[in-house]
Amino acid sequence: MRHIISVLLENEPGALSRVVGLFSQRNYNIESLTVAPTDDATLSRLTVTTIGDDRVIEQITKHLNKLIDVVKVVDLTEGEHIERELMMIKLKASGAARAEIKRTADIFRGQIIDVTPSTYTVQLIGASDKLDAFISALGTANIMEVVRSGVSGIARGEKTLSP
């Protein structure tokens, strides 16, 4: 099953490489990884999406917790949560395709953020499967380039991840 694991990490040199190293060393897979500082300058927040059975996920969270730089770990998929990912997608947009792309982007509530006579660049934010759906709705013919941010997640309700 796919899990979204959120990690609060000391904002120290080498901390990120320890997390990434753990995944490769122990043969865990990383689907996506995002990391950025938080409102507290001493902490970074990292989100990993990974696939594994319960035993593997349990081992991943245990090993993450063991890393000295890791302050907190939570598997967001264990509770109610919101996940978002940002995608920018550059498309060939001429002739009939131009209007079609615009229409599809509207349906998905995407925004066109860059325009040339022959291209559109669309920005779309949502859960990963929504981004996937958008890509398949467009078809491969017009896609020139795709860049995705990787997943960020947060728990619903009062629950927070704090040190």
Binding site: P13, G14, S17, R18, G21, Q25, I68
Partner: peptide
């Protein structure tokens, strides 16, 4: 050395 030793240490420090 921080990189080489990373998978075989409990932790490591680099003095700056």
């Amino acid at each position: 050395m921080m990189g080489i030793s990373r998978p075989i240490v409990k932790h490591s420090f680099s003095v700056s």
